[in-house]
């Protein structure tokens, strides 16, 4: 039965500018047992023709997840800790609604299995009070899992932000992105 040692003081902080594209998180992600040994993290060049910048994307665990809302099979759920879980395998019909509706481009569809899969913050580990696999191996701490006090001490000139604007839509998330100090939100478009 689910472990209830989930530590709500711990939060996830992402800083894409620190990503060096080493793929260590990708390898570690595949160790997560809730993914069935499939890596769910996204790392890719942002715009290879003009820059070597890479970006890393984990599920942002939205407060009102678009993926769960557009799921025709009620396969995606958010738990009491705010973790948005990967598709319930019994229900998912592999329609890809969630893949296309997620504003962060997170869910993936396993075509052969006709199943959507996504990061669920290494629930096998976080529900037991441990850190997600990706955050434990990231050498530049582009991915960091810890308390707000810890991140403030490490990044005194940054502010964690969890409010995003995609055009008219405001999206609030459980996962934070490290922004310049004093920022309140990130406007994507």
């Amino acid at each position: 039965m689910p472990n209830t040692k989930y530590d709500q003081q711990m939060e996830f902080f992402v800083d894409m500018q620190r990503c060096i594209g080493c793929h260590a998180c990708e390898m570690a992600c595949a160790e997560c047992e809730t993914n069935g040994q499939e890596s769910m993290i996204h790392i890719h060049y942002v715009d290879r023709a003009v820059t070597t910048q890479t970006t890393v994307q984990v599920c942002m665990h939205c407060e009102d997840p678009a993926c769960a809302n557009v799921c025709p099979a009620d396969a995606i759920s958010k738990d009491d800790f705010g973790v948005v879980h990967t598709a319930n395998t019994a229900r998912c019909i592999g329609c890809s609604n969630c893949v296309l509706a997620c504003p962060f481009g997170v869910p993936q569809k396993n075509e052969a299995a006709e199943l959507m899969m996504k990061c669920n913050m290494c629930y096998d580990r976080t529900s037991a009070g441990k850190k997600p696999m990706c955050a434990t191996v990231c050498p530049t701490q582009a991915l960091f899992y810890g308390t707000r006090e810890e991140i403030q001490k490490m990044r005194p000139n940054s502010t964690p932000v969890n409010k995003f604007f995609f055009g008219m839509q405001e999206v609030n998330t459980k996962v934070n992105i490290m922004m310049p100090k004093g920022s309140t939100h990130l406007k994507v478009h």
Binding site: M16, Q17, H42, H44, V46, D47, Q53, T55, Q57, V99, L100, C102, P103, F104, G105, V106, P107, Q108, F164, I177, M179, L186, K187, V188, H189
Partner: peptide, 12 residues
Amino acid sequence: PEGKRSALAKAH
């Protein structure tokens, strides 16, 4: 999905 992730990275 990749375009969305890139848009976020570029905005950041």
